[in-house]
Structure formats: structure tokens, C-alpha cells
């Protein structure tokens, strides 16, 4: 396949392709945001801890996690279980759209303070 002497795609073509990909991704990501609003659940970060540390949600229904960081430094909400990494700057609120979860427990941490910032989402 890749024999020497064969021409590889020009830089221009690749840039165009990358841009097309970016635009597609943008469209795909924004589309669900326009759909109806599911239930909202509040989560607060204060003194490098989450409150509440246990969030109870209905299994099988999407929801929005509204995370407010009341600390003076940023925090990263991270859940390996849910594949989420989200930076929440100091004093800001982030709305995270969550997929519908199967019944079970999903742990999350604040990556910048993982010793203290721990919590879990219980879907039931």
C-alpha cells in the first residue's frame, strides 16, 4: 500500500478534512442540547468536598447535573465510570447533561483534590 514514491495527501486536503470533522462534531454535540430539558440535580463543591456526596437519581432517565464550585480554586469533576472530565472554575456553575443510567452506583471525584472530593451517583 504505502510504497515509496507514491504521493501522500496534500496538507491542504488534510486541513479541510480536519475542519469538516470539527464542524460535524460540533453539530452532533449541539443537537441533543436543543432537545427537551430533563430533571436537574444540584451538586455543590465547597471546601474541596462535594455536597451531597451521594446523589440519588432515577435509573433509566437522563438528567442534568448542575455543579456549582463555591471554592476559590478550580475543580475537575471526574468520573471514570461515566467517562466524564469537566473543569469547573472557581465560583462557576456547570450544567452537565448525563445519560440515562442503569441501576447501580457510579463514583466520581474532584481530580484536583481527590483525597477529599469524592462522591457517588446512585441510580435506582
Amino acid at each position: 500500500m504505502s510504497r515509496a514514491g507514491q504521493r501522500s495527501p496534500s496538507p491542504k486536503e488534510t486541513v479541510v478534512k480536519a475542519l469538516m470533522l470539527a464542524v460535524t462534531l460540533l453539530g452532533l454535540a449541539v443537537a441533543p442540547a436543543l432537545a427537551a430539558e430533563p430533571a436537574e440535580i444540584a451538586l455543590v463543591i465547597e471546601k474541596n468536598r462535594f455536597a451531597p456526596e451521594e446523589v440519588r437519581v432515577k435509573a433509566g432517565a437522563p438528567f442534568v447535573l448542575v455543579i456549582t464550585n463555591k471554592d476559590s480554586g478550580p475543580e475537575e469533576f471526574e468520573s471514570k465510570d461515566l467517562r466524564i472530565e469537566k473543569v469547573i472554575p472557581a465560583g462557576k456553575t456547570v450544567r452537565l447533561r448525563m445519560p440515562s443510567l442503569k441501576a447501580g452506583t457510579y463514583s466520581f471525584i474532584g481530580e484536583y483534590h481527590e483525597k477529599t472530593a469524592k462522591g457517588r451517583i446512585v441510580a435506582e
Binding site: A18, L21, A22, V30, A33, P89, V94
Partner: peptide
């Protein structure tokens, strides 16, 4: 990230990060 808010903060960084990863 620290100066924006609303949908720009909710989705913006993720879109940029995802684009950079695929690039």
C-alpha cells in the same frame, strides 16, 4: 474557561478537547 459561563462553559471546552484529540 474561567471567564465564560453558560452553554459556552458547559459545552465549549469539551468540543475543543474532542476536536484536538481527533486532530
Amino acid at each position: 474557561i474561567t471567564s465564560v459561563s453558560g452553554p459556552l462553559l458547559d459545552l465549549g471546552p469539551d468540543l475543543i478537547a474532542t476536536t484536538v484529540i481527533f486532530a
